[in-house]
Design a protein around this nucleic acid. Structure first.
Lengths: 346, 346
DNA sequence: TGTTTTTGCGCAATCGTTTGTGCAAATATA
DNA sequence: TATATTTGCACAAACGATTGCGCAAAAACA
């Protein structure tokens, strides 16, 4: 099972290395290799199950048929799901994925990206952990195409594919409002991340538009269970606690649920909740959680498409793609009569 | 930001490529490069942030500082968690991970492995989707080290690091038995996989030892939510349904919970459940689920260690490592009095 | 000063591909 | 038959790194 090379094949076929290479790369026509030789070479190559040495190939061509994927944390099901989709799509296109986990840390991320560069990946799909796009922009400008997913930057030249977090948040909050809630708290994630910013903006705008300006109440500072828990406990001990919570992620949601239950309250009877991001288990919580669902599949598919396109034609894309989220209604929201204090009650 | 090479550095430093290479590889001593030259070269290399071209390196040395990781499904949190650990440990050792998702399909898996081979990875960590070890054994014998995790093979020469699924299952079932249950059903996963086999064996042995031989009742055939759901519905419609269920995985558990709840029953009041595999959200289900926890961290750490060792010394390991699982008690099991029919009642 | 030893470094081959160019042999044309 | 064209393929350089070997200059020794 020793390594087969162009040389070994060429010897057995009695032709030159060059010819073998050309045949196997589908350039037989271009270089006018005869039908007979083509078949001879093909047969030999198949017989020994020849696989080109990618290192040698890439040394010559500067192509590796590899793309780098950088996520903040592969343990996060959101990113695990997206990774799964990207790995699959990449494979269909003949690419392999090198996965790097930044562990929500910008230094790690840069390490990882450097390692990808050293490996001559053909392009990078990244959901950045930090908030400085410049080093990525440099790479995109000077070296190889970069596409952002999920977390993007304002005013960046980098192409991105993200969910319409703003509208998703508006929809979430509007759903609570439609159910009669006005004291709606929002527990947010890492404040500098664009998804958090956008969702927060959506929350504020929806509240404002409904005339609940004075009720605006965004707390919290990261995407952890802990954060969801702590903030919820604090919210619940106020003299006038919210009647509904908009949790910005699954993790925050889990913390919130724990806090609610420890406080002896029930969802949705005592407090309503809506969350962001889908996950099967949310249907198995008690009650099942109403949530905003991101179009993961589309994000992955489009990101790959943009990247491969750029790799193919050498141009940089400036696509800024924002995809709609959708509402999945379950049982975590209780309709209430609006308090007369807001002037809406009957 | 164009690619720096040994050549460009050597020119600026006024020495040969050879010397630069030797300095940067720490072979200055061996080749008696003077202190002064070493420092000169080092400075130049750092100044331009030189990163060796891995393709060129690997073409020469046959080493890529890359390991391949193959999992049945990265969407499965169990594997996402393990991947996270392995990526991290590999990085600490200076290795990068290429991740391949077999999507629970043996053909995909072989494709993936082939692609890893073409990339000259230095070793492979794999949780196999199929049940034929021979092609992996061949690779391990003739090409590069392979280490199995989670799913292993009986009678294989391949080294593996797995959880003691047998004992874990025994503990799970014993826990139910200790709580007075005897009509205990087991819903299993992919029957040919070793974890499923071992857990099933544990179930049977525990039941037998307790004298409940006639109650042995293992159903189901894959690790899907669907399977958990269907089998549970069937179980619940029997004239004498089980009082407890041993679910072999989180996914099966979720299906089971759904079926129970749709049947108008409550956990644990009407039926007790214990599951396999840990996950934060299990504490947020209602009730929180008692489960058997696998030592993911240890599995990842040990697997990497074995692999790197093999890569380092060129020998194949024959380590067969079986790590203990642990019980995490929550609220999904109700203690009952044993039915007199079993001769244990009071 | 002449010889031996040590020090310090470079030459050139090599890994497995790709590709521009060139050159016979075969075929077509005159 | 002589020339022009086409066909079919090979030569050799290049990608960027590693490494066995060799050789000149400096140092040590006589």
């Amino acid at each position: 099972m020793k390594q087969e090379t162009l040389l070994s094949i060429s010897e057995r076929a009695g032709v030159s290395i060059t010819t073998v290479s050309r045949v196997l790369n589908g350039k037989a026509e271009k270089y006018r290799i005869s039908r007979k030789t083509v078949e001879l070479v093909r047969r030999e190559a198949e017989k020994c199950n020849y696989k080109p040495n990618i290192a040698a190939q890439s040394l010559r061509t500067k192509r590796t048929q590899t793309i780098g994927l950088v996520v903040p944390s592969i343990e996060n099901p959101f990113f695990a799901n997206i990774a799964s989709i990207i790995i699959q799509k990449a494979k269909q296109a003949g690419y392999t994925v090198v996965l790097t986990d930044a562990m929500e840390n910008e230094a790690n991320e840069q390490d990882g990206v450097n390692s990808l560069l050293a490996r001559n990946v053909d392009g990078i799909i990244i959901s950045p952990s930090g908030n400085d796009p410049s080093y990525l922009e440099q790479i995109n400008d000077l070296k190889l195409p970069v596409v952002l997913i999920d977390r993007f930057f304002y005013n960046t030249t980098l192409p991105y594919v993200v969910t319409d977090n703003y509208r998703g948040a508006v929809d979430a909050v509007q759903c609570l409002i439609d159910n009669g809630h006005s004291k709606i708290a929002c527990i947010q994630g890492v404040p500098h991340s664009t998804p958090a910013k956008e969702r927060c903006r959506g929350y504020r705008d929806a509240m404002t538009r409904a005339g609940f300006t004075s009720e605006i109440d965004a707390v919290g500072n990261d995407f952890s269970i802990q954060n969801g828990y702590v903030e919820t406990r604090l919210l619940l001990t106020r003299h006038s606690p919210p009647t509904a919570i908009f949790a910005m992620s699954n993790t925050i949601l889990l913390g919130a649920i724990k806090a609610v239950s420890e406080s002896g309250l029930k969802i949705p009877e005592d407090i309503s909740i809506i969350s962001f991001d889908d996950n099967t288990y949310l249907d198995f919580l008690s009650p099942p959680i109403t949530r905003i669902v991101q179009p993961l599949d589309e994000i992955g598919t489009i990101a790959i498409k943009i990247l491969l396109q750029s790799i193919g034609d050498g141009n940089r894309s400036d696509a800024k793609i924002v995809l709609p989220a959708s509402l999945k209604v379950r049982n975590s929201i209780k309709p209430v009569n609006r308090s007369p204090m807001n002037g809406y009650g009957r």
